[in-house]
């Protein structure tokens, strides 16, 4: 009786959460495929013989929240330690979504590549619980988008 409600919420959270995760991964795979030829690298300099006609900061950010099921399982895991396996797909989705948004930002402005890509996260505190809980995590991807003037100027 006492366990009924939380268990029901847990099940609903699991089914909805799993469904949304699956759909998100499908979207990510599709968009990653479209962005396949677009260079996104972590170098902070371009090769010497490349020249850029213009460049700008581009960024992509996403805020994700945990579902109740993941939160409960992670809570149990927290008792004994180890990999919080239910969080891994969540953060994987966030990372890839942020990078995709950054790419989409760069492409929409006509850039050819993004250099010096960095990823950052920050935790959003839960206002209802005195900032103790986690409402969600922000994943931010940013980098320097570059439009090439002549990519292989010296080589030619």
């Amino acid at each position: 009786m006492n366990f009924g409600m939380p268990l029901l919420i847990l099940m609903i959270a699991y089914f909805i959460g799993t469904h949304l995760e699956k759909r998100h991964f499908q979207s990510i795979l599709k968009r990653e495929d479209e962005a396949r030829g677009f260079p996104v690298v972590s170098f902070d300099t371009m090769p010497d013989n490349w020249t850029a006609s213009r460049s700008d900061l581009v960024s992509g950010s996403v805020v994700i929240s945990l579902d109740y099921f993941k939160r409960v399982i992670a809570g149990l895991r927290g008792l004994i330690g180890g990999r919080i396996k239910t969080y891994e797909p969540l953060l994987d989705r966030a990372r890839r979504e942020a990078v995709l948004r950054m790419i989409e930002d760069a492409r929409s402005q006509g850039y050819d590549a993004v250099f010096n890509v960095r990823l950052e996260t920050s935790r959003l505190a839960n206002a209802t619980r005195n900032g103790k809980g986690t409402a969600g995590v922000e994943m931010l991807a940013y980098g320097t988008a570059v439009k090439f003037a002549s990519r292989f100027a010296n080589a030619q």
Binding site: T18, I73, L76, I80, K85, T86, E88, P89, L91, R95
Partner: peptide, 15 residues
């Protein structure tokens, strides 16, 4: 970056 353990298996093992 993602474990292939099914979340329900993870839940069951922990519980």
């Amino acid at each position: 970056n993602v474990s292939d353990t099914h979340p329900l298996v993870e839940a069951g093992t922990l519980v």
